[in-house]
Design a protein around this nucleic acid. Sequence first.
DNA 1: CTGAAAGCGCTTACAG
DNA 2: CTGAAAGCGCTTACAG
Lengths: 337, 337
Amino acid sequence: MNTHSRPVTLRMIADEVAVDTSTVSRILNSTDLDARRWGSVELIAKVRLVAAARGYRRNPQAASLRTRRSGLVGVLVPRLQDPVLATIYEGIEESATEQGVSTFVTNSMDDPETQATRTELMLARRVDGLIFGDARTDSPYLDDLAARGVTFVLVSRHAGNHIAVTCDDLLGGRLVANSLLASGRRKIAILSGQPYASTAQDRATGAIEACREAGVHIPERNVLAGGFDVAGGRKAMEELLACGERPDAIFATNDFAAIGAMGVLRDRGMRVPDDVAVVGYNDTPIAAELGIPLTTVRSPMHEMGRLGIDLLLRMLRGEPVESVRLPPELIIRGTSS
Amino acid sequence: MNTHSRPVTLRMIADEVAVDTSTVSRILNSTDLDARRWGSVELIAKVRLVAAARGYRRNPQAASLRTRRSGLVGVLVPRLQDPVLATIYEGIEESATEQGVSTFVTNSMDDPETQATRTELMLARRVDGLIFGDARTDSPYLDDLAARGVTFVLVSRHAGNHIAVTCDDLLGGRLVANSLLASGRRKIAILSGQPYASTAQDRATGAIEACREAGVHIPERNVLAGGFDVAGGRKAMEELLACGERPDAIFATNDFAAIGAMGVLRDRGMRVPDDVAVVGYNDTPIAAELGIPLTTVRSPMHEMGRLGIDLLLRMLRGEPVESVRLPPELIIRGTSS
DNA sequence: CTGAAAGCGCTTACAG
DNA sequence: CTGAAAGCGCTTACAG
């Protein structure tokens, strides 16, 4: 009943065309342009025809054993459930597929130990390189990895001098602060997210700097760390209110944290945006559809993913590359106006 | 500068211990239990010690070339950006990793052509089997694939008689309808999602059946197809209202569609839940945190993923397996009470 | 219990 | 331009 026939091999094509496997290999691996270097026009056509007719697909495991290149890339993200990272990964996978490379993704849960374990697992799979969406600024792990000669690029978050594709989060934070200040807000609090993530750091720092330049001071107790999710936003917001603070604006460095914060505000009877303005970050799809549409900063997530894999593949080809910082865009909606 | 040294091979371990590679292979591939069949206790200990000391990691490409098993599984989802599928995939990947197999995921965008193309790509990568999270009830593609002898399982959606791990969506729909009826709602409309997805079909059918049994008829014009996202929910809701319908309850077969629908209701000044109750499906993390917390049905997404890969691996081992249907749970919140 | 041999399906110097 | 050979790193009948 099992029709699962053995895949077609180079050998079969070679036998059918009555040439050597090496000839078939050379023809099938060359483009139209340089194919003429191998085989006559007739031979090339015939080999291609037979290969197509038989549905030949090169065995990537066999090829990689020989070439010492797996065509595999490992991707680590804090959590794929986070739509921001899911979108970045979609960009990575899309471009990787276009370029004929395959990717593995896995969650590190932002845990250093898991990050190391998963990276070693990826290396055991013989990936040619790695993409990290979960770089921490407080860990020497990536430095060690670089010292071992492992090729990788960072996306979303930067760390040290490693090649990274990021959004200009400092600027993003500034855009938010300036907009809030322009609408008359003065008591700004920041739900800054994970302290070890450059995204969180930069967004908060950008906002704080812009405020300072405008003569508005944000006291340290008004800058709260927390998770990049709804629960994290809730928790940070509750802490803030528990301290007796009554801000007139909240900048959450993540849309979900902003949603969590708004849940708390709702429970306390504080009106958005009348009593307090709320701004998020990333412009996730739900942002525009909330009870009160969320003001947020759009970051080019899909493009970060695409550029990330592109840079990595260039590095693997030995080409020189540089980090890329993409511009953010402020999207003003109901929660801040 | 590049310290990227060649990986340790079986040969190196064998040379160091002064035995044949075949012996090392046998020892390293056996568990403590049956290791005694190969090598003396001392030899086993020594081989393991040296392998660990040298950081030996079997080359999976080489092993797979020999064994004709890649240890690779392909996963197709409509879209990874959808948190429901991201969560299911997390379950798949988690269990796969525990069992030593690697997975590739890709988006099919619910497009039959893309689904076929991506499946062929997975097959070209020599995956041992596939998991589909994007099965369509209106396509013979999976039947063709099964006829070709390809091993696969379905998750989230079922189709034909193929092995599938699903939530009991008929029951889920019934739970929703019964709850709505119990709270006095009678003019129920259903935003049923994609017509080709069994999830959408079953959830709607379950609700319609439960209503009929209670003597409440849901006219066909009150059952609207649409996307499983915010935009899809908006659109379907707008269509419904454009027809002049004034339902007192909306059952969206997906939380995001429910959120989109609530956006429209808000714009029209219709109050939730006073004027109209809203119920979603899946219990995504934001559901509990919305302006008005969303009543929804919790489906075991992570577990579906885990069970999906487990079933697939059993099938690949030649063990007999059967489809699994997991129970849903109604979570009543603010939008329906 | 252990070794030697063969071979999985490719690619790539090396000849001619 | 094409072929024959070697070999990537494993596993597994087959001997002994």
